[in-house]
């Protein structure tokens, strides 16, 4: 059993009072640094590490734990299981700290559901509270301005709860990408091109190979290669900035695209390798968007249509193989 890494320095110079009193400390520094980013920014561990505040990963995690315990941060999980964190404002944190345990439990469930909202009955069942108690707690949360109740259009007698500042998700009956229930391939392709163009511009820079050499005699068109732009990951393009670019350029007239739909498209574009996720919300294009190859698929057998039929003996074998004959320029045995 490997020993747990020991942090030589005292881990935290008593962080608690500092948050309240505002004296500077690492916890404060981390909080303030994160607060510089736009509200609602999701941070992953390596972004937090690159802020160069903690002295070790263990210390960083301790700081984050501290912030989470004190409700200054919310810890979440990305789709791939990677942990990530979102900052709360000091007011929010204060409110959370003053909640009763029941209130906090329900609040967290509502928070987890995000745009989908939660049905009050589901809340009750999961929290294991009596109906009266549930109603009371929800009322309290509402009066504190943390959550709101909405009615679902389809099932009017179902009461849904949602975080105060969220808009309920639109029914996914189409959105801009669909026309009459079918995906609009032409529109999608057009927006994809715009996205690729913009993100490419923002994230990579073409510079001459050997940019740091004497180049008096170098011709006018030096060979270029791409280097990553010097940007913090938070400033890489996001759904918001990409959308802004598309709106500003007035490229797409016929449809209005919202940020959520943009996110949907970007997410899809990461699937075929054109976009890569740099952080929870930002993207870059792949330096080389084509797929590589490997020893298996380069050889005749790798893409052979009769691979499964080919055996050690019988009609189709390596001896009688037409693909090998072509690949090597030799003759195969006549079958």
């Amino acid at each position: 059993m490997p020993p747990k890494l020991k942090v030589e320095e005292e881990v935290l110079p008593d962080a608690e009072p500092s948050l309240v009193s505002g004296t500077s400390s690492k916890v404060d520094a981390l909080y303030n640094k994160c607060a510089e980013a736009p509200k609602g920014t999701v941070f992953i561990q390596r972004e937090l590490a690159s802020m160069q505040i903690a002295e070790s990963t263990t210390q960083l995690l301790t700081l984050l734990q501290e912030l989470t315990d004190r409700h200054f941060m919310k810890s979440l999980e990305m789709h791939d299981g990677q942990p990530c964190w979102v900052l709360r404002t000091r007011e929010e944190a204060e409110k959370l700290r003053q909640m009763t345990p029941d209130e906090r439990l329900l609040y967290q469930m509502i928070d987890d559901a995000q745009k989908d909202g939660v049905w009050s009955k589901a809340l009750r069942a999961r929290a294991g509270l009596t109906p009266q108690r549930t109603t009371k707690v929800l009322k309290a949360l509402e009066s504190k301005g943390l959550v709101k109740a909405i009615t679902n259009v389809k099932v009017p007698n179902k009461k849904m709860y949602l975080l105060k500042d969220l808009e309920p998700s639109a029914d996914i009956a189409g959105g801009p990408w669909q026309t009459d229930g079918e995906y609009d391939g032409a529109l999608i392709a057009a927006v994809e091109r715009l996205v690729t163009y913009y993100v490419d511009q923002q994230t990579w820079r073409d510079v001459p190979v050997g940019m740091n050499r004497h180049h008096q005699d170098i011709e006018d068109n030096p060979r270029l290669h791409r280097v990553p732009r010097d940007l913090p990951t938070q400033r890489y393009p996001s759904a918001k900035s990409i959308l802004q670019f598309i709106i500003d350029g007035e490229y797409i007239k016929e449809k209005k695209i919202s940020e959520a739909y943009m996110e949907e498209l970007l997410d899809m574009m990461t699937l075929d390798g054109r976009l890569e996720r740099m952080s929870a919300t930002t993207y870059r294009t792949a330096r080389n968007p084509t797929f590589g190859t490997n020893g298996f698929v380069d050889a005749p057998c790798g893409t052979c249509p009769v691979f499964d039929l080919c055996g050690n003996e019988g009609e189709i074998t390596a001896r009688t193989c037409v693909y090998f004959a072509e690949w090597l320029g030799t003759e195969s045995e006549y079958r």
Binding site: F296, C301, A318, R319, F324, E333
Partner: peptide, 16 residues
Amino acid sequence: DTYKGMVRLMQRLNYE
């Protein structure tokens, strides 16, 4: 599949 591809390469080599 890769092992199999390699077997075919060896077999082809023996045939050649």
